[in-house]
Amino acid sequence: MAAEDLALRGFEYIRRRAFDWVADVGRVAMLLGDVCRFLVPGLRSMRLVVAQMEAIGVGSLWLVFVISLFTGAVAAVQAAYQFSNVVPLKYIGSVILRSVIIELGPVLTALVVGGRVGASIAAELGTMSVTEQIDALRAMAINPVRYLVVPRVVAAIIMMPVLTIFADAIAVFGGYVVSVTSIGVSTHTYVSALKQYFYYKDLFSGLLKAGFFGGIIGLMGCYHGFSTEGGAEGVGQATTRAVVAACVLVLISDYVLANVLFRFIFAS
């Protein structure tokens, strides 16, 4: 086969993917617009939001607990290693605290919740799509965005910061356990470092990011669920796409938000 031919096919492939991508972005923007439009009517059925908050929040607690505990523990071990002969170990609490509440807590929680909740939303709505349940809702004059999407996106936006606070606390505790038991830092030293270097703006930034990530996860789950086609296989693919999209977007937006928050808003 001629190299030209191959190049042409490669070009065609890239062109098609680029078009698909632009179309996806446009449709997500439209869904987001609809979510804003139906936000108020959607919130009137509070019981739907509460049900989703329970599914998202309570269901994720155990997973977030385990991940956070070990994240804090690893942060302590790594900090001790990198500090050796450079920084006094009495600062270990502050390094763990700040890296956890600014970065590790929100991002790791988002990745875990993105995997779990993004997948379950996409699978549920995807199954509803392919079994005509979404059509049935529309035929009953019930707007699916109001009835299905708004409660899920809002619940994710509310629950992510809550889970993140929980994750922050557990991670700091995990770091404490390791610091005290195997690094040789006293409880008093660890806690006073925590107190000395705790800033509200760090916590605020972390929780703001968490809420933002929650929105991304909810929206990606719903978008890929709604665009599911073709039976069980389609549901599987939609689920995968939702999780991948959520995780990638969480990391990209984390970078953008880090710039906005720490180089402009809280720059000092």
Binding site: E124, T127, M128, T131, E132, Q133, D135, A136, L137, R138, A139, M140, A141, I142, Y147
Partner: peptide, 29 residues
């Protein structure tokens, strides 16, 4: 649509709800 009722070929019942909730959904909404 509020003046219409539709029976789908595959029933299209909402499987996360009970039968009673299915039948009562449009009344509730």
């Amino acid at each position: 649509r509020k003046r219409f009722g539709m029976l789908f070929q595959g029933s299209a019942l909402f499987d996360s709800m009970t039968v009673g909730e299915n039948v009562g959904l449009s009344l509730r909404e």
